[in-house]
Structures are given as C-alpha cells and as structure tokens.
Nucleic acid binder design. Structure first.
Lengths: 141, 141
DNA sequence: ACTCTAATAGAAATTATTTTCGTTTAGCTC
DNA sequence: GAGCTAAACGAAAATAATTTCTATTAGAGT
C-alpha cells in the first residue's frame, strides 16, 4: 500500500510527467497542508524554473481526481494535502489552523444531508464542501 | 418578524450607514445568492458611485455577523444571500447551482463531527464550512 | 528508436478579492 | 445642532488564482 504515483496519475487519465510526479512527491513529504506558493518554491528548487500556472493547474487536476485534498482555508486561500490513507472510503478532514496538520474524521453527515435533499427538497446533490477547522490536541492548551 | 435592518446592523456594533442599509435591502430583494459584482452594480444605480471595496468590506462584515450568508461557490467565487428565516437556529443551505436559489437544510451533521473531534482527536472546533451544491426540484429533469 | 498527436507547460494577461491609507461621516456629547 | 472621534468610505496598489494562447513533450503506435 505504499503510494504508486505513476499508477495514481494514470488512473485519472492524465499523463505521467516529471512535474506531476514531483508535485505528488513534495506533497507526500509534507506533514500538513501546503500552499500552492510553497509547492512552487520547492518545484523551482527541483526544476530551476517552472510556471506558477503549471503548479496551480496540476494541483487542481490532482485534487479534482481525488489523489490529493484541496482545502479552502477560512482565509479563502487554497491549500493542498496528500492524504496517505486515501484508499479508504469517503471521509472528511479536521484541519488544525495552528500547525496545519490534517486529521481524518470518520463521520460524514453528508449521507444524511443527501437523503434530506432527496426527500424534502426533491433535489439532487452535485457536490459538497465540508471542512472543519480547529485546534488539534498538540496545539491546544 | 419583518426585518429591521438598522437594529440588525446595530446588534453587530456596526454603524448604520446608508450603504449598509442599501446592501441589505438589495440582498433581501433577491431570490437567490448574488455576486459582489452584482451588488456593486445595484449600489451604483442607487448611489451613482461607490467603491468596490466598500461593497466587499460590508458584505464580509455582515456575513461575519451572521446577518447574511456567505457562499463559497465550487468555482471559488463568493456569493451572498439574505436568509429570511435567520432568527431560527443554526442551519445549513442547499444551493442550486442552476437557478441560484438557496434552500434551508434542517440537518446539521456538525454536532456529531464536533463530538468526534472532541473525543477522538482531543481537539476543538473553531469554525466549519458546510455547503451542499446541487440541482433543485424546479431545475431538475 | 522514430513519428505523431493530444495533452501539458509556460508566459503573460485577466479576474477576483483584499489591503492600505488618506478622507469623510455617523452618532455620541455637550 | 456644533464639535469630536472612532468607524466607514474610496482610490489605488497588492495579492491570489485563473485563463488564454503558443510552444513543448509524453507516450501510443510503428
């Protein structure tokens, strides 16, 4: 169950490029969520020069495909996170706004919300956004 | 229970300015969520000239205070919505991405998530973001 | 290994939002 | 209702993210 980046990338019908591999490698090596800006810095260390839009585009594509997690911080900036137990089922995350660690949540109330949308509103859910921000055990008082 | 904008604004310890009143009036007159840009257009109709930053600032302040709802669309753009039954308890919204209507959801899984964060992770929740996007009954097939 | 083509990368422009800072104003006090 | 002061406003600059369009490259087929 060690991560096989090329296969992951291919499973999204994306080409396996050195930059995609590097982005995954960088994210997987980080303990918490990272800003696109920081990913860009690290990519520049590896490639000397790389377009910022490439970083943004790839982060977006990879998170779209579910290989990495996209976090919309309360400050509205974007962050990305490589979730190591992603093989598991749908789950959400608790994000520590102090140390940037990301912890898994088992509970997902969305099942019930989806049911309510169907029965009460007669609508259908296309997508949802659930993020919980707080202070983790280590950072707490 | 008809909306009393001046009181609402004062309850947030904000000054009751013509622009704030107008922003609330505009939002309350819309059936769905509106973009800051559109609010700005309507404000310009009323005031002739008004700074875009004033619109953004006020929308943010009012949503911060809970008088209006801030919606972060999946496209990451911001929208705002005046929820007419805001006196009620904490609740979330189903947002139709087709017609922009906003419908109330009764269920809030956050209680349980908060419990899980406390017991399993020993952390505390500071804020959360839950938004459900989909297609409402009218817009559905 | 070589060719081909659709997918990807990068530069630059654009859009959306936020911040800064000097000017104006709401609303309290007299 | 005149004066005062903290809050609000507006213009312009800064920041974050996205789009566009041309150049480059991964990887399938040979």
């Amino acid at each position: 169950m060690t991560a096989d980046f090329p296969s992951s990338i291919r499973s999204l019908h994306l080409k396996v490029t050195p930059k995609r591999l590097a982005i995954l490698d960088i994210l997987a090596g980080e303990p918490g969520y990272v800003s696109p800006e920081k990913v860009w810095q690290k990519m520049k260390e590896r490639f000397g020069k790389i377009g910022l839009s490439t970083v943004y585009r790839n982060l977006e594509e990879l998170s779209e495909g579910g290989i990495i997690i996209k976090i919309v911080h309360p400050d509205r900036k974007l962050y990305y996170y490589f979730c190591h137990n992603l093989e598991g089922s749908h789950h959400h995350h608790f994000v520590c706004i102090s140390c940037r660690r990301v912890l898994d949540l088992n509970f997902c109330g969305l099942d019930e919300i989806e049911r309510e949308v169907k029965s009460n509103l007669k609508g259908s859910v296309v997508t949802h956004l659930l993020q919980v921000f707080g202070i983790c055990e280590r950072c707490g008082i």
